[in-house]
Design a protein around this nucleic acid. Sequence first.
DNA 1: CGTTATTGTCTGATATTTCAGACAATTGGT
DNA 2: ACCAATTGTCTGAAATATCAGACAATAACG
Lengths: 266, 266
Amino acid sequence: MSDGATGLIETEAGAEPRNGERRRGIDRVIMLLEALLRHRAPMRVGDIAKMIGAPRSTTYEIVNSLLEAEMLENVGTEGYVYFGRAMHLFGWAYSHHNAHYRRIIETLDKMAAETGETVQLCGLRGNKYIVLDCRDSSGPFRISSDVGVEVPIPWTASGRLLLGHMSEEELKDFIPPGDYKLPDGRVIAPAEFFSDVALARRQGFSETVALADRFTWCMAAPIRDSYGAINKTLCFVLPVDTPEARRSELLALLCERARGLSLAGS
Amino acid sequence: MSDGATGLIETEAGAEPRNGERRRGIDRVIMLLEALLRHRAPMRVGDIAKMIGAPRSTTYEIVNSLLEAEMLENVGTEGYVYFGRAMHLFGWAYSHHNAHYRRIIETLDKMAAETGETVQLCGLRGNKYIVLDCRDSSGPFRISSDVGVEVPIPWTASGRLLLGHMSEEELKDFIPPGDYKLPDGRVIAPAEFFSDVALARRQGFSETVALADRFTWCMAAPIRDSYGAINKTLCFVLPVDTPEARRSELLALLCERARGLSLAGS
DNA sequence: CGTTATTGTCTGATATTTCAGACAATTGGT
DNA sequence: ACCAATTGTCTGAAATATCAGACAATAACG
């Protein structure tokens, strides 16, 4: 039960757990929190222990400490735990400490209110794409993708923009080969993806139609930092049958707002 | 430099650090994060070390681990650190895992959009009051109180509601004597506070005028859980000179929405 | 420019934490 | 009613993470 276990979380923190060795409590905490984030639902202590490859006794110890600090909290009566209130406070502090991020959130709110569509703020985490924040459409058509869940970059419109600074060579090294395979089994040809990236760079926006799933039309526009680099994108997730007229209207709005949030002159 | 240091963080986790003793890494992490939350701004490693009463070498070790996990991140170039992206993701997961909380957030958004006023969600943390989430007024009059900062209960309208289930005896034991002293030096008579609590319970809402600061009129309404207990409140923070007509309109809205979010029948 | 404080990195020793495993108490399946 | 799996709590022992302190390199200050 050391290496082969599936779903095992391997943080960079601490590299390999050579047989019979001990791990630091801190690293366990980090692994635990990331496991919980991935799983995206309350877990029992026993399952957490399996997931992070830690002894049960150790896991109980750690979980109890985190419970006491309100970083975790009990959910239901049957020993399930999930993130706690303190995490909310820490996260809030993160997202409000910097004026730029605050402006972005306000824009997100405003766009959601004005259009009623699903709006997302996206970025990279390592070599995966993640949603950093979102406002879900108020309509019945609700495609909620979870904040913080890692998704292969080629599945997304934003991904094509976020990699705009890379050469083809760099792209090849950066994207894990398996990530070209879509959830429905289709495979994107790398060459096609590379030209998408180039197109996105030229256009200053990117669209994907029925890619990661059959029902959505995604459009993304870049938010540039003060060096002109693209670290984040703003995007709409629309029903795939949205009429052309409305789509181009929304695309224009998206690009305008994203430009307004960019720090570079250009 | 063991006991007398001011501003030292004392988490419940681990009680007393008897002389010459070592502390667990996990406890240090917890103390560190809470120190950062209190301080509400990026800190240098040296200052963190002082604040949590840990050796510098240990602090560097821990900070580096947390940086690698993106639970902290570097801010600026001069060795400052603050909460990192991972915290945002964990916090987001917390606040969306439960349908009730999600409904509350939506209501918060809607009320802010409709009224343009500052709206807050409040609760208790131990024997202090904290803001759990807020939407700031879009107008020029912006009273932003920070989410997660602990405030003496008697300073707040919400506090009067949140303690509604306690007897006078319990209140006496619960509130630290120093908490009756307002920031401007005035002191609230405990008896007066107790009768405020009773009044709030009877009315089903609570208001304070120019209490914690001279410029605000606060009104709070209770959100009841499925047992009828009040764990959270919804409140408006208004300019103190808001006309009576608008105030009563807003109060009615507040009470209606808070009742809509309550889970109890009553 | 000399003096004092701070930062970031290392080191070795020991006080402590992690770990394996045992335990009783539940739970679940058949 | 049986057997198997799981939960939560304890234990002692070994492995190691925390600690004090030293170090060079900047920074702060008069």
